[in-house]
Write a protein that binds this DNA or RNA. Structure first.
Lengths: 356, 356
DNA sequence: TTGAAAGCGCTACCAC
DNA sequence: GTGGTAGCGCTTTCAA
């Protein structure tokens, strides 16, 4: 392994000059720059970022702690983060907290040891972010979800509006008996979706019977169980809003097993859109989150904090907090349709018109 | 930010003692260990891994360069790597090469600068791994795919056997007109799948007309185009083997648009299995790669190389190369069935038996 | 404009 | 057992 000294010797200059070259100091003479670069290339020399980090007290590395990397939603988030990081000379250490608060805490400590400049965090349900000492370690930007009452930097989908708009879509199709399968309600992503759903119902004075509010946990199995329960009710709903991709899969399985046809017998609206949503039978109507953009903007905010004056280093409270809520997009496909009763009415109307 | 000196002062010991404590040196007296640990906890002190790395010439960090993180297959690979790394005290820097050889080369240089201890690489089509100087930088273990003629450490699916077994499944169902949609053929994953397919056909003396060999590029669009082409042939195949998940999606879209029913009119066997494979209509028969295990074993091999004696540091040629080929699993679902002609024969046989 | 040297936080060697 | 200290590779100040 070569050092700056080897390059200096080979190029016949001092180490300070070599350092000046790869830090683009304008004071180094072009001729010397040339000689140094040649020497660097000859030895496949790349400055040691570890030594550099120690000296500069800056690693140009950020940590990314994801509660559940297996959820394909996060793949796009990660890509957005990675792209923005890479084009700004940052590297990303990826940590999979696996929905385990203990592991999340462990990762946050590891990242601190490694002196990452900042952290992007999609927190688990029992969030370490609430502990103030974590924020003394490095700036943090939350992604996708925030704990109740959290006041800090965050980028997420405007879940309330997204759920509201989606539910309105169901109402406008003529549905009156609409059920919801929610996720956990202790983080914003679960709660805001339920709230948006409720708002849309209340505006139309539609009831939400207890049985129509099924509480899942964002996992496939819970979507399946809640789906079974809903469709076995004496008065099953005519439309179901499923609050994430996995639960939607479980719900579809439940419908299949019960031989309940979608959308004829029940409409399904799912949160999260993916490559395969348009390949289902029926093609799924979904609420698409801007995952890539979420990652990109989160990294941008973090970078901005890192460029803040050194004395507060992006940690101090004086820096204004940024919360970005990105708009989701409703993608209407074939899993939502007017309820059977409305079909009847429409047919009748059609008949009437024809008979004029 | 506190340093080892602050802890030493607070605990009333020397820096050497403090260092001894968090490096588990058995020579430190328990009473001192206690005092030091208390001081560390009091200040939320975590040893600076940057300084440590500089001193030890070891970062306990590995790089992971993925040609295409958007492919959900890699999500599981990454999880396997991450889990194995984490439980051995390693961190993972994730790099998305985006199928761009230039970007891949750039990342390999960045990782070298950061002095990662080793690299896991799913190479792009125009692979930097063939360049010998890369291997002087750090040990590399390839994942999922190797360039033709590569001799080094690698972990991948036994693509040849997987494709062979899958094709045999089609043959045993009675298919004789079997087509394939391949990916690029310059890396092992594409080529071995084609070879396994060919082998199975040859054993049964089945022809592979030129038109039945459609060359895709592992992207959705190519699966779609190849699917259209195949089913518009004067003599379309009765079964199609699609060489990855994305192309299978494209193929299914093509079948849908042409109103070709699967599996009645054509059977579909897809490489790669995912959460949604069992939720398609029809439920897809697939070849499931052990992605998580692939990541885990790749990281294990890399760790083993890192523990090799310092003088060759896992880079020298003397260390034997390990190539692991993991078995894939054929998951038979509903998208593959006997061809229409065989259905007829079976029905006839059934009739005959009844008439006995 | 260039070079010599101090020091970032830690480890490990050596002296006590 | 414990402590003092050189030095990992780099940046940057200061002197030439």
């Amino acid at each position: 392994m070569y050092t700056i000294r080897d390059i200096a010797r080979l190029a016949g200059v001092s180490v300070a000059t070599v350092s000046g070259v790869f830090n683009n100091k304008p004071t180094v003479k072009p001729a010397l720059v040339e000689r140094v670069k040649k020497a660097m290339a000859a030895l496949d020399y790349h400055p040691d970022q570890v030594a550099r980090s120690l000296r500069l007290r800056r690693t140009c590395t950020v940590g990314m702690v994801i509660a559940d990397v297996t959820n394909p939603f996060f793949t796009d988030v990660i890509r957005g983060v990675e792209k923005e990081a890479q084009s700004n000379g940052y590297s990303v250490i990826l940590c999979d907290a696996n929905e385990d608060p203990g592991l999340e805490r462990h990762y946050l400590s590891t990242l601190f040891s490694r002196r990452v400049d900042g952290v992007l965090l999609a927190p688990t349900s029992s969030p370490s972010v609430q502990e103030s000492h974590i924020h003394k370690r490095f700036p943090i930007v939350l992604i996708d979800r925030i704990p109740l009452g959290f006041a800090g930097d965050a980028v997420m989908t405007d879940n309330f509006s997204a759920a509201y708009d989606g539910t309105r879509h169901l109402i406008e199709l003529g549905h009156r008996q609409i059920a919801i399968i929610t996720g956990q309600l202790n983080l914003s992503n679960g709660l805001d979706r339920l709230d948006g759903f409720r708002k849309a119902l209340q505006e139309e004075h539609l009831a939400l019977p207890d049985k129509y509010l099924q509480r899942g946990d964002f996992q496939l199995e819970s979507g399946y169980q809640c789906g079974l329960e809903l469709m076995r009710l004496p008065m099953p709903p005519t439309a179901i809003f499923s609050c994430n991709n996995r639960m939607t899969l479980g719900l579809m399985r439940a419908l299949g097993e019960l031989h309940v046809h979608c959308p004829e017998a029940v409409s399904v609206l799912g949160f999260d859109d993916f490559e395969w949503s348009a390949y289902f039978t029926p093609r799924l109507t979904t609420i698409a989150q801007p995952a890539f953009e979420m990652g990109r903007q989160a990294m941008q905010i973090l970078l901005r904090k890192l460029q803040a004056p050194a004395e507060n280093n992006g940690i101090a409270d004086e820096i204004p907090k940024t919360t970005v809520r990105l708009k989701a997009e409703l993608r209407v496909r074939d899993s939502t349709a007017a309820p059977a009763s409305v079909h009847e009415v429409q047919k009748e109307n059609a008949t009437l018109e024809i008979s004029h």
